[in-house]
Amino acid sequence: MERIIKGKALKYGDNINTDIISPPQYMELSIADAAVHAMRAVDPDFHVKAKDHSIFVAGANLGSGSSRETAPLTLKYLGTEVVIARFFARIFYRNCINLGIPAIECPEADKISEGDALVIDLELGAIENISKNECYRCGKIPAHIFELIEAGGLIGYLHNSVGGR
């Protein structure tokens, strides 16, 4: 896992829940087939835009609702490398970490706009907004969670600790 992540942002509001990210009616499809429907209630073009916008930014309570891992799996499939929010719903947060997607709490997430070029330093806990020439402090990822992200997610961590084959 790179400790510095660069990319362009997509920006959404508060309470982007898992029914929005991964609409239940398409969950019987594969992640690839369901991905075109991701976020359709708020941004039907998300699946196109996500390809060259690798940073998913939202306001408060990102990922509320269902435990469905299809939400972060879909984001990952579409090219999302990191998610940023003022704060996360807990199961979504854990799902991101378990899949090796850094989830960063940033009180100033609302200052970020769609298309902004960002440089995120995971270790320092800082976001540089190149487009706006601003810098935001964000929550540092706790050590026990960083270990999981470094291993590429829970499965990588388990391979290291329990030993898979």
Partner: peptide, 18 residues
């Protein structure tokens, strides 16, 4: 409490979670 699928996979392997 609710968990995601990968976390459940970890539980199925180890019987534990953090």
């Amino acid at each position: 409490t609710g968990v995601g699928s990968t976390e459940m996979l970890g539980v199925l392997v180890t019987g534990k979670t953090w």
